[in-house]
Nucleic acid binder design. Structure first.
Lengths: 225, 225
DNA sequence: GCAGTCATAATTGTCGACAATCGTGTGTAC
DNA sequence: GTACACACGATTGTCGACAATTATGACTGC
């Protein structure tokens, strides 16, 4: 079996962050990662560069990389820009959608439903982000797709940092509603559904309270409560 | 003399692209760049990674890096997102502006005016992008600043690829108008002025043009200075 | 006992060399 | 003369080793 690619490793780390196993502020040592994934340190540096671009890790010169600690304001900015991007994606989609693409989207939402029913957290995270990514790619706009990738990564980190419960709220029902409007060609309704969906996701976050600043060592030493 | 940093080299190449010495489609060989800038090939790869993130170069696996060739649709997407980002920046700025910052902005526009008067193309390019970057940074939003940096880079490439004349149209007058509205605290007017400014820049582009032939890499970079 | 200084260990930053891959040009068969 | 195959050169991808920097802990003087 071939060694993992930089993108694959980056996705693994992204998942760990989204699943809150890696918490904001945690150190990411290059050598450690290299051994864990069985790759060279040079490749790890590529991975960290990718994750830094996506806002998931922050690097300090000669100090190393850490899981990023997003601020409340940054969280709001991300959702603000995300609304704009997703609106644009929907506008573009209207001219490009066909039955095949609609079927693919419907199948995707069905997978989300299954994951929700079986409470498969990892699948839920992957698929809920994947839905928005899929929309962006179907809009056939390279720039928007890349931007959406960044925004989804950042949203995952924000969700991991600020959400109250362990439940993922980017549920399949609202995705389904968006698809329905797209299918009937109602741009206005689709845009509105998307806006409502993003509002809903953002509203479920704890963006008014203080952030969870617990680091790994502290977290490990503190007993429950 | 210390070796150039990756960011410095990236900026030099960005300038070369914005000044149309490096044209879309031109090959960027790693060894050649390494020799021209007197750095190792590893550092050149860092530079290319930065430029790829900013959409200025496109890399193909095992083929190398080329100056990106933006499409007309991509150009429209970039301006669309840019409007959203700059609107958000203005909203944030209203709460944060003080006399000092306004003075800095005014001084910057004055520099632009001088550069325009003396027809200093390189300064014009740097300063006109710098104005928008400065606004983003004054809004104290790390995410927006980073995004703006990308958008400005992409806009520079788009402008270089699609503009009719050799004149830069992101003139200081419209920048001045935005500042005036910011000074008087009129958010609505400032947003409108910004929207008009971006519309104006986009409208001056030739969105059905063909590209021209390439020159040698060495000539295009003009390393002497 | 405490503050400051220094040495050592750990970690990141940088580089040059080697391996893998692709494009080009040549040679050969038909 | 043309088309295909092969080999060579050029270029990129990958890796391990060395240098530079930082953090940690011991030591010394007071």
């Amino acid at each position: 079996m071939d060694a993992l690619s930089a993108e694959q490793i980056a996705e693994r780390i992204w998942l760990s962050i989204a699943e809150r196993r890696l918490r904001p502020g945690m150190r990411l040592k290059e050598t450690e990662l290299a051994e864990l994934f069985g790759v060279s340190r040079a490749k790890v540096r590529q991975v960290l560069a990718i994750l830094e671009r996506e806002g998931l890790v922050a690097s300090e010169l000669n100090k190393g990389a850490f899981v990023a600690e997003p601020s409340v304001e940054e969280a709001r900015d991300v959702f603000h820009i995300r609304r704009s991007v997703e609106q644009r994606v929907i506008e573009r989609l209207i001219d490009r959608l066909d039955d095949d693409k609609l079927a693919v989207l419907a199948a995707h939402v069905e997978k989300e439903r299954v994951a929700n029913a079986t409470n498969d957290q990892r699948a839920i995270i992957k698929l809920s982000g994947g839905f928005h990514q899929m929309l962006a790619e179907m809009s056939e706009a390279g720039f928007l797709s890349g931007l959406m990738r960044d925004l989804i990564s950042r949203s995952s980190l924000i969700t991991a940092a600020f959400r109250d419960s362990d439940k993922y709220n980017c549920g399949p029902d609202e995705h389904d509603e968006i698809i329905a409007h797209l299918r009937s060609g109602d741009v206005k309704a689709a845009r509105k559904a998307m806006a409502h969906h993003l509002d809903h996701v953002e509203k479920e976050l704890r963006l008014s309270g203080e952030r969870d600043t617990v680091r790994s060592l502290k977290d490990a030493l503190l007993l429950s409560e």
